[in-house]
Amino acid sequence: MGMQGDFYQLLKEQGYALATSGQVGTGHALTNATTILAFKYRDGVLVAGDRRATAGNMVMYDRTDKVLEIDRHSVMAIAGVPATAYEMVRILEHSFKYYRRTQLQELSFDGKLRAVSKLLKENVPAALAGTGAVVPVFAGYDLEQGSAKIYFYDILGAEFEAVEYAVSGSGSPTIRGILHYLNTWGEQPLNALPEEQAMVQALRLLTSAAEFDSATGGVNREASLYPVIKLITGVGIQTVPDATLKPLYESQVVRYV
């Protein structure tokens, strides 16, 4: 019978396997070509990601959504192999729904975190083989505690709680320093930023990442392509529409000298 309300267990009983184990060490090191970030602001947590998908030097796609909603109060931002990442998100989405519907209560926030680690751990063979490494950032609003939370992971499934912010992907080294600087010596710490300022900072950060990392898309005004920005508060998740980002970008991100 197994653990009650465990959807992943149910899938496994039916012969499903997330990771196909390859030969360890045969794969070439894949870069996690992207930039995703999450930080706590005044009302909750902001999660953002650029929209570029690359394969080596090639730009494959410019409209990728890397910030994926799992349920009404949690999102997973993905860096790494998209095929595996999307599959994980699909499993998580169904797992949380299945748990809620069978057990007639929400899965706790800790339970959700555990589910993410478990999938990453199952995926270790593929991650080591170089065919399926995923380095996600999991962010959400813990309704029981009434607070926003951010967690980041390594490819083996180790879970770390981010106090203020978390970043992942190839563009992340650039903005990690900026986030540290902003949070420590900025006009106000990140977690005091009002909603609009938080969005402006997210746009600036992703634009900086795109400046130094060819695999990060940034903003493409000609094509009206803006990053995906989601705000998670106690009420739920809100995706910021391009119509809101456009004026913010034009007035506070583009430098008019």
Partner: peptide
């Protein structure tokens, strides 16, 4: 109810 939930979620996935 459990059979229905199981079938629905596996199919949906």
């Amino acid at each position: 109810r459990f059979s229905l939930l199981e079938m629905a979620h596996v199919e949906g996935f």
